[in-house]
Design a protein around this nucleic acid. Structure first.
Length: 426
RNA sequence: GGAAGGUUGCCAGAGCGGACGAAUGGGGCGGCCUCGAAAGCCGUUGUGGCCUCCGGGUCACCGUGGGUUCGAAUCCCACACCUUCCGCCA
């Protein structure tokens, strides 16, 4: 959630920032108007309450002093004030919730550093790593779904039989490779990130905190009977890990990581990139997340990005780094770098990590604060996160990149200890 | 799923209709004492909103949401969560 006080004091800069996203900012004037009315009425309501308190105190005193007649008189007066208060309070509450509803749907202000632009095509490729377009041989030009079928390690048909399209089943060494990637993704970050294993089903409030609700309700699986949501990423439970808590500045930056299943309905993307592992409803991912002060945020952002890159590099994969333009940023993000692995078999760049800085947008929703060591009061933390390793697309990248001329796959050295020492698949 | 008990400030814990934003103890912070420390003594110590002539004023918050009342931490109702027991279960 953006800070309504900023909107109040400097509406033009808020509008300018949101315009960079391509947002329609006409709703903001509505908020400003509602906010002014809300505050005026609230102040009136408080005055009435103050009066009621005073009168009631006097009633108590009169009873003690044995003057019940005078007390009765004052009680009538207070009752009248009470009626006024009810009317005012109802109006204030209604305005407040109206403002809150609108505000929950206003996206974060993009960082000044985020590139100008409105669509995917305006994203800036800031670098390519380990990539040489001419370095690939014909035996690497086989899409992973074909490799998976040839080697019996990916069973798309049965995945569909069990759960429908865009659900997959890994088999044999394919499943082992999944698990290896997960452990590899966790172990290599265990030096600085505390491993967590949060619930995969969460309450509505938990989804609201990250910004996944109410705006993106269609993208999430909802278990109506229990009013629980299947998390689309571990970012959701980890961001709410410290919800409604006040942290010590000394504990920041707090760095957490978790492997979870992730569930996405992918509404509106039917028929797009649906082959193989490019887009699936359920997948595994290792997520890195941090709570930080505003000053610490840039360093943490760089750290998560570096770690995500190193994990891919050590798997022998090529990738590129994108700086997302203002218009292509996720609603909660102020700045995002995407990592895209090059998959030679499908000849596509596959997004495997989104490393984002959310400023205090998510933490204001989640009410995560910290107590600065050298000043009074509390401040809202910043949150940052990124995929340490997203299994299916990395799986695809590994299988296509490391396919050898005999059709087998050579397993990257870093994964071998997690695969019972195996060096090849097939 | 059933039964009982519980939820108060940083922690423990009192309060059970009126001077309670909340006793008392512990902790933290500041000071006195001391070469220094401990002990002791004194003071101080929640969060948030709005307004502010920046001195302060005012409102809200005792699990959450409603209700009763002139007045609710205190009474009533519902719900959530925790603990224990029973049932079920990997």
């Amino acid at each position: 959630m953006i800070d309504i006080r900023l909107l109040r004091s400097d509406p033009d800069s808020v509008k300018a920032a949101l315009t960079r996203r391509g947002e329609d900012t006409s709703g903001l004037d509505q908020i400003i108007g509602l906010d002014a009315r809300q505050r005026a009425l609230a102040s009136k309501r408080d005055d009435v309450r103050n009066e009621i308190k005073n009168v009631s105190r006097q009633v108590g005193g009169l009873h003690r002093d044995g003057k019940p007649d005078e007390a009765t008189e004052l009680q009538a007066q207070s009752r009248e004030l009470g009626a006024q208060e009810d009317v005012l309070a109802a109006e204030v509450d209604e305005l407040a919730s109206e403002i809150h509803e609108i505000l929950l749907r206003v996206p974060n202000l993009p960082s000044d550093d985020a590139p100008e632009g409105l669509t995917e095509s305006d994203n800036v490729v800031i670098r390519h790593e380990h990539w040489d377009p001419d370095a690939y041989s014909d035996h690497q030009r086989v899409p992973h779904w074909e490799i998976g079928e040839q080697l019996g390690i990916l069973d798309a048909e049965r995945g569909t039989k069990l759960s429908g399209s865009m659900f997959v089943m890994y088999s044999g060494m394919g499943a082992t490779l999944c698990r290896a990637l997960i452990q590899y993704g966790l172990d290599r970050n265990a030096d600085a990130y505390r491993e967590m294993r949060p619930p995969t089903l969460v309450k509505t409030a938990t989804m609201v905190s990250t910004g996944h609700l109410p705006k993106f309700e269609e993208d999430a699986y909802h278990l109506e009977r229990d009013d629980l949501w299947a998390i689309p990423t571990a970012e959701v439970p980890l961001t709410s890990f410290c919800r409604d808590e006040v942290l010590d500045e000394a504990d920041l930056p707090m760095k957490l990581m978790a492997h979870t299943s992730c569930f996405r309905r992918e509404a509106g993307s039917a028929g797009r990139d649906t082959r193989g592992l490019l887009r699936v409803h359920e997948f595994d991912k290792v997520e890195l997340l941090s709570y930080a002060t505003r000053d610490q945020a840039p360093e943490v952002h760089a750290d998560i990005l570096a770690r995500a890159e190193a994990a891919i590099t050590d798997l022998g994969l090529s990738y590129r780094v994108l700086d997302l333009c203002a218009g292509d940023l996720g609603g909660s993000s102020a700045r995002t770098f995407d990592l895209e692995v090059y998959a030679p078999g499908t000849d596509q760049w596959l997004e495997v990590s989104s490393v984002s800085w959310f400023s205090d947008y998510q933490a204001r929703r989640a009410n995560v604060r910290y107590r600065p060591t050298d000043e009074k009061g509390t401040r809202i933390v910043d949150t940052l996160n990124g995929s340490g390793l997203a299994v299916p697309r990395v799986w695809a990248g590994v299988v296509e990149t490391h396919r050898q001329s005999d059709g087998t796959i050579s397993i990257p050295e870093v994964l071998q200890p997690y695969m019972r020492g195996a060096t090849t698949i097939g």
